[in-house]
């Protein structure tokens, strides 16, 4: 029995990893395609029909590239910093429920790799750890651009973790649990976006800032810092940063789906399909934003986070608590 549970866990992990990494790889293609169409271009269309072999070609290219380590770099930190970003992004996927419990030969099999009773905090903890990949990668490269990118990244991600966490407090209050499975179960009647539109918007904005994408891509601002914290990385190490970013986008999509859009719940289609569809809405929105908005200035970024998002998030918590107390009588 113990052995069976272990095999089942491995199986679930393998399936989730495959789907997640596959989606992330193809998200790169989708982003380039969509960005092309937003700019009235075609985007990649040479590798196979509609460029469907592009991610594979990119992967082969990345693996075959020379792995350079700049002179004066802190070699150990430089080597392991990219892994932090990718690992952390992938680990978050462990607590995302992707279907209702399956019943197989009388056993109740939860369709989530690990139903932590503090799943939401686990998500926040991991996303707060991903700062290290950025800051250390920037520091270890021994380059001005990287260092500036790393410093910017550290400051930005620490600042936007606060609204990210605060915007989730009303969700926890409504669901009465930190567990992501319970949060999805609490949205059986209606998704939380209906009652928490402000928290939804704050979470989305903070999530964009956490994933360091436009208009918050100051850590890797191309025209100011070359590529910011990953300027000096090449080959597979750069690819790890890249994969980390896209996995992070997918995971954020899944988290938005779980926290605000009802997770895997939906009519007609199978639950997994619903989750993937909902999860893909966020990357699409991020790509759309990338095609639309220019980059913020650094002081604007900080003002926006500290002086606007955090007070609104706090007020939202207060209002939610008041309404809940009032409804309870």
């Amino acid at each position: 029995m113990w052995f069976l549970g272990f095999v089942l866990l491995l199986l679930k992990t393998a399936i989730v990893l495959t789907i997640l990494l596959g989606l992330a790889a193809y998200l790169i293609l989708v982003e380039r395609k969509l960005l092309g169409r937003f700019q009235i271009r075609f985007g990649p269309n040479r590798a196979g029909p509609f460029g469907i072999w592009q991610p594979i070609a990119d992967g082969i290219k990345m693996i075959l590239k020379e792995d350079t380590i700049p002179q004066g770099a802190d070699r150990v930190v430089f080597k392991y910093a990219p892994a932090v970003v990718a690992t952390v992004a992938i680990l978050i996927a462990a607590v995302i429920p992707f279907s209702r419990d399956a019943i197989l030969w009388g056993y109740d099999i939860p369709m989530v790799i690990s139903d932590l009773n503090v799943g939401l905090l686990y998500v926040l903890a991991l996303s707060s750890l991903s700062v290290y990949g950025v800051a250390l990668g920037g520091w270890a490269s021994n380059s001005k651009y990287s260092l500036l990118g790393g410093i910017r990244g550290a400051a930005q991600m620490v600042s936007y973790e606060l609204p990210l966490g605060l915007s989730l407090v009303p969700v926890v209050m409504l669901a009465g649990s930190f567990s992501l499975v319970d949060i999805v179960n609490a949205q059986a009647c209606y998704p939380f976006v209906v009652v928490q539109p402000i928290a939804f918007v704050i979470f989305l904005i903070a999530a964009v800032a956490e994933s360091k994408r436009l208009p918050f891509d100051l850590p890797e601002a191309e025209n100011e810092l070359n590529a910011g914290y990953h300027t000096e990385f090449s080959g597979m190490r750069f690819a790890l940063y890249f994969i980390g970013e896209y996995v992070h986008m997918m995971v954020l999509g899944a988290l938005v789906a779980v926290f605000f859009l009802g997770g895997w719940r939906g009519p007609w289609l199978p639950p997994v399909v619903w989750l993937v569809l909902k999860a893909l809405m966020v990357p699409f929105f991020l790509i759309w934003t990338r095609a639309t908005l220019p980059r913020l200035r650094y002081d604007q970024l900080m003002h926006f986070g500290w002086k606007l998002l955090i007070p609104i998030a706090l007020l939202n918590i207060l209002a939610t608590g008041a309404v809940m107390l009032w409804l309870r009588g």
Partner: peptide, 21 residues
């Protein structure tokens, strides 16, 4: 202002690409 910007980019999404292959 933000909404109009998003609307314009969305409109461009459905335009025919002008790229010459």
């Amino acid at each position: 202002g933000l909404a109009s910007a998003y609307r314009i980019t969305l409109k461009h999404l459905f335009r025919k690409p002008i790229t010459e292959q």
